[in-house]
Design a protein around this nucleic acid. Structure first.
Lengths: 227, 227
DNA sequence: GCCAGCTTTGGAACACCGCTCCAAGTTGGA
DNA sequence: TCCAACTTGGAGCGGTGTTCCAAAGCTGGC
């Protein structure tokens, strides 16, 4: 009897790599990064660890697959834009919003890129930023360098960037950091003490976009100067 | 005498927070990131885990202290530069070289910043980049945003950046990535396939500096435009 | 219908991890 | 001298990723 039930259960939901990755993403989103363990997954999927290791490789592979899936989805919709600058902004925003929606993505992005600097994650991001780059007027030999700069800015901004949305939690968090910065010795930290208020009042998303524009302006300026 | 008491106290303490952090950095440098465990540390220092947890807090605190120490040392020498641009380049290079010398630093930098976006690590880097920023002609209300962009670029470049120095290992690694990129479908990855060769031949340090210059150019262009 | 040979599954077991807790050792001031 | 506070070493706990393997399901040829 019991074996029959198990059978029908299993036949209904066949285990596959995709299903595991999907469950991993859901687990990461709902319960947080530290909750994604093999045992949690086996429980959620009513299976054993052997099955999971059979479909996905190591735990790190699973995390990479989860990151890759989320990023691929974020980049799936081709951005409709008039200018190459707008297309770059659209790509950046799509990735930024994905990182906001999946709070674990930032750390994973950084970890995966550090582990494998030219893996599939970098591949996707590079292609998406580089494609409109071609229409920006940059001479082809500089494409790799300029796109790298853009991608690196994005990675850095995302790595630090938004821990939480516009929740009151965040305001409180910023207030704490603000007070700490303001109470520093102005002789040791003349810059930090000056801009502490700007830090407290800044908006992550807006600042991210400003940064993108700034890098774009640098790229275009470089083109103009060369011409 | 207060100094005498302090001295004798120091002489008494065989174990200290500084000594533990120092040993941790050495262990990270020599044996790699995964080798830094509490048990390894106790063996190296001929002590027990209790002593370590008494001086430094959690393992994460130790990693943060290690990162902070390395970064503080890298930024300790005030850069001698004529222009603010040169000073920014000097700061960037000092940090870049620190990340090259300590291969574990990149991952830790990213992890610490993700965990605590406005912690002591960010503090130091922000101050060092921001100080010369004041002499760059940027209006004060923009200081935070422009410095953030610079810092974010630095973090991203470091996160991806150099896994190994100019070792033959690296050339082989780049060749593998190059072939993978070149063999992609040009219809799916028109950009990647075009710049694959540039990726293989690029120099990390030179490209990092070019990126810094590019961001600087964007910042200055923004100033000129506003004026 | 049947069975060999493959894939897939579930779970026990292993080595190792960070961390807690505590009894002992050590120190310095009263 | 004595005791309170600080410091130390290590056993032990709950948890982790990963391996290994026996059993079950599946599939194609007979």
């Amino acid at each position: 009897m019991a074996s029959q039930t198990r059978q029908s259960q299993r036949r209904r939901q066949v285990l596959s790599r995709e299903r595991i990755v999907e469950a991993a993403i859901e687990l990461l989103d709902t319960t947080g990064e530290s909750a994604l363990t093999v045992r949690m997954l086996t429980e959620r999927l009513s299976t054993g660890s052997g099955a999971i290791y059979h479909h996905v490789g190591t735990m790190n592979d699973l995390l990479e697959a989860a990151s890759d899936t989320v990023i691929a989805n974020a980049l799936a919709v081709p951005p409709a834009a008039d200018t190459p600058e707008d297309e770059i902004r659209a790509v950046a925003l799509a990735l930024f919003d994905a990182a906001t929606e999946h709070p674990w993505l930032a750390a994973q992005l950084a970890a995966q890129i550090t582990r494998n600097p030219w893996g599939s994650v970098t591949l996707r991001i590079f292609e998406s930023f580089g494609r409109p780059m071609r229409a920006l007027g940059v001479p082809q030999p500089d494409w790799f360098t300029t796109t790298s700069t853009l991608v690196h800015y994005f990675i850095g901004a995302t790595t630090q960037g938004p821990h939480d949305g516009g929740k009151p939690e965040r305001a409180e968090f910023l207030d704490t950091a603000f007070e700490a910065w303001q109470n520093l010795d102005p002789d040791d930290y003349p810059f930090i003490t000056t801009i502490a208020a700007q830090m407290r009042d800044h908006d992550d998303r807006r600042q991210f976009l400003t940064g993108i524009d700034l890098v774009l302006k640098g790229i275009v300026a470089r083109v103009d100067h060369a011409a």
